[in-house]
C-alpha cells in the first residue's frame, strides 16, 4: 500500500467536510464539518512528517489541534449566544449581515 493513500483519504475527508459546511444548516453540524476538515488536514500533516522523516509535520498538527480547540470553545459560545437571542441554531436565521 502506498503511503499516498493517506493523502487521498485526507483529500476526500476534507472535501466531504467542505460540502457539509455548505449544505447543512444546523450551526453545530456546520461546526463539526469544520472540525472534520481540520482533522483531514492533520492527517495530511502527519503523513507528510512520515514522508519527510522528521517531526515538523507532527508539530504543526499539534498546533492545529490547539487552535481547533480554541476555535471550538469560542464558536460554541457564539452559537449559544445566538441561540439565546433567536431560539434557533440555523445559520440561515443569522443572516442580518446584509442589512
Amino acid at each position: 500500500m502506498a503511503i499516498a493513500n493517506y493523502l487521498y483519504l485526507s483529500a476526500i475527508l476534507f472535501t466531504i467536510g467542505a460540502v457539509g459546511v455548505v449544505i447543512r444548516r444546523n450551526a453545530i453540524v456546520v461546526f463539526m464539518c469544520i472540525e472534520l476538515m481540520l482533522n483531514a488536514a492533520n492527517l495530511a500533516f502527519v503523513t507528510f512528517a512520515r514522508i519527510n522523516g522528521n517531526l515538523q509535520g507532527q508539530v504543526v498538527a499539534f498546533f492545529t489541534m490547539v487552535v481547533a480547540a480554541c476555535e471550538v470553545v469560542v464558536g460554541l459560545a457564539i452559537i449559544v449566544t445566538i441561540y439565546r437571542s433567536r431560539r434557533s441554531i440555523s445559520v440561515d436565521d443569522a443572516s442580518l449581515l446584509k442589512r
Binding site: 467542505a18 459546511v21 455548505v22 449544505i23 444548516r25 456546520v30 445559520v91 440561515d92 443569522a94 443572516s95 442580518l96 449581515l97 446584509k98 442589512r99
Partner: peptide, 14 residues
C-alpha cells in the same frame, strides 16, 4: 451576492 447567508459565502470560498 451579499445575501447575508453565511453558507453562500462558504460556497464562494469553495
Amino acid at each position: 451576492l451579499q445575501n447575508g447567508y453565511v453558507r453562500s459565502y462558504a460556497l464562494l470560498m469553495i
